[in-house]
Design a protein around this nucleic acid. Structure first.
Length: 243
DNA sequence: TCCCAGGGGCCGA
DNA sequence: TCGGCCCATGGG
């Protein structure tokens, strides 16, 4: 995997869609530093410091919660669940630990798999509570996260990248599908193999990883769907994809 | 009505 | 190790 082609794809998507400003943080939507959807208003500089600047321990917890809730689920449904959690006072580590399983499941119902996800949030809350505040200056190790029931590689990497600004490339279904169609992946690669290939080609740049993953998701939703919508695909128009 | 969405765990072969 | 199945709501 070479830097040039990956960077051409990135630039093409960035030119077309613009900066995505991930990760949206619900608790900051109505306060300074974010727009009303919780996105960074001017996400042009994605240094690690900027990614994690202004993230409170509560925000870090919220990003971890969002990473679990979005498992196999559209973000729109996750937002509803996050709103329910917020209005029930459950976007808080301690509160999740104290909440009943029913109350939690009820709040996260719109995101689907609500019984499973309620359990996962309990596990997450216990983890953060035991290691002190989910402070973004004190990141957990990937191994620690992977030991948690309900946290797999994509979820762990999302937390490390988006909550802690660490250079972990997030590989999801969109990444595999899109780069297979681009002829860069065969489709048989393991998660860690793909992540390592991106990391060694692009360099350990959390800002770039952040924006790249967000753009992949955007393009995957709008064009590179399971049933591809090649008409109007910017990668195709720029001769980067011949699928 | 059917398909799909920013996965992960479990189990049998 | 790997495939198949389960978890489940909401939108197109």
């Amino acid at each position: 995997m070479c830097f040039n082609i990956l960077y051409s794809i990135f630039n093409c998507l960035l030119d077309y869609y613009g900066p995505q400003g991930w990760w949206p943080v619900y608790s900051l939507r109505l306060s300074g530093g974010r727009d009303k959807r919780g996105y960074l208003p001017n996400p042009s500089d994605y240094s690690r410091r900027n990614i994690i600047a202004g993230l409170s321990s509560r925000d870090v917890f919220e990003i971890a919660v969002g990473a679990v809730l979005t498992q196999n689920t559209s973000w729109k449904n996750v937002e509803k669940a996050l709103e329910n959690l917020e209005s029930a006072g459950l976007l808080d580590c301690r509160a999740v630990m104290d909440a009943s399983a029913t109350a939690l499941a009820d709040a996260v119902r719109p995101s689907g798999y609500y019984n499973q996800k309620a359990k996962k949030l309990k596990v997450l809350a216990r983890f953060f509570s035991e290691r002190g505040n989910p402070d973004n200056g004190n990141p957990p190790s990937r191994e620690d996260l992977l030991e948690l029931w309900g946290v797999g590689k994509e979820t762990a990497d999302s937390i490390l990248l988006y909550a802690y600004g660490l250079p972990f490339f997030v590989v999801d279904a969109y990444t595999k599908r899109m780069f297979k169609r681009l002829g860069i992946l065969t489709g048989d690669e393991e998660y860690d193999e793909i992540a390592a290939a991106f990391t060694s080609a692009l360099g350990e740049d959390p800002g770039l990883f952040n924006e790249y993953h967000a753009l992949i998701v955007r393009h995957g939703r709008e064009h590179c769907r399971k049933k591809p919508l090649c008409k109007g695909c910017v990668l195709r128009m720029n001769n980067l994809c011949s699928f």
